[in-house]
Write a protein that binds this DNA or RNA. Sequence first.
DNA 1: ATGGTCGTGGGACGA
Length: 259
Amino acid sequence: MKIASFNINGIKARAQALTDWLAEAQPDVALLQEIKSVDENFPREIFEDMGYNVETHGQKGFNGVAILSKLPLEDVRRGLPGDADDTQARWIEATVVGDRALRLCGLYLPNGNPVPGPKYDYKLAWMERLRARAADLLAAEEPALMAGDYNVIPQPEDAKHPEKWTKDALFLPDSRAAFQRIVNLGFTDAFRARVQGPGHYTFWDYQAGSWNRNNGIRIDHFLLTPQCADLLVDVGIDAEIRGREKPSDHVPIWVELDI
DNA sequence: ATGGTCGTGGGACGA
């Protein structure tokens, strides 16, 4: 089963580029972030016509996550637990059943800039809630994954110019430590389980010719429970599509699981 | 050092 994560930066502007990529990459599941749409306006028919079941968790203007799946989705839940007052649409999870059941969690972690300020406080608080949900997933001792735009650069090698990010919410010690605490619970960073070294990015800013200079960062990640990591066959980043017409500023990252 | 670009929705704001 091939499972991808893709921050599309607006479904309205990305419908063509997204369907083109889906037709080529043929993921069984696509976890989408930044759909920037309310559920009623999400063009679900486009994807249903391609054979996908569609589950969305959107809001007006910003954020918003979705799951596309060629297999039926069960037990869909929307919203990260832990704060009933949090109205931002950043989390959706569901179970897909192949040879075995797999719990899928799609996430759009807060950016956190500017620092200091309430947005950075919200980011760190959200990551603490994520850690709690992650611990519960591990306790179930089943195949599960959490994938999406984490808005965290885990290591200096995950940025072309790490020195430019030292005061940014994506790379500050507290953000990186919070990410590492979650990994340290027992998760596998699927990409780093397979690929070592610098130069592997998932995001290039629209500004200042970042793509042409390959001035990127790796901020989209797959974290796998041990039972899921045991099923890992392959991983990849479809960086090439960043150079196409009307691209998102992110590119897809995917895993192939033996399930 | 500075300014540089997108998307949504139809004005600011987020990234």
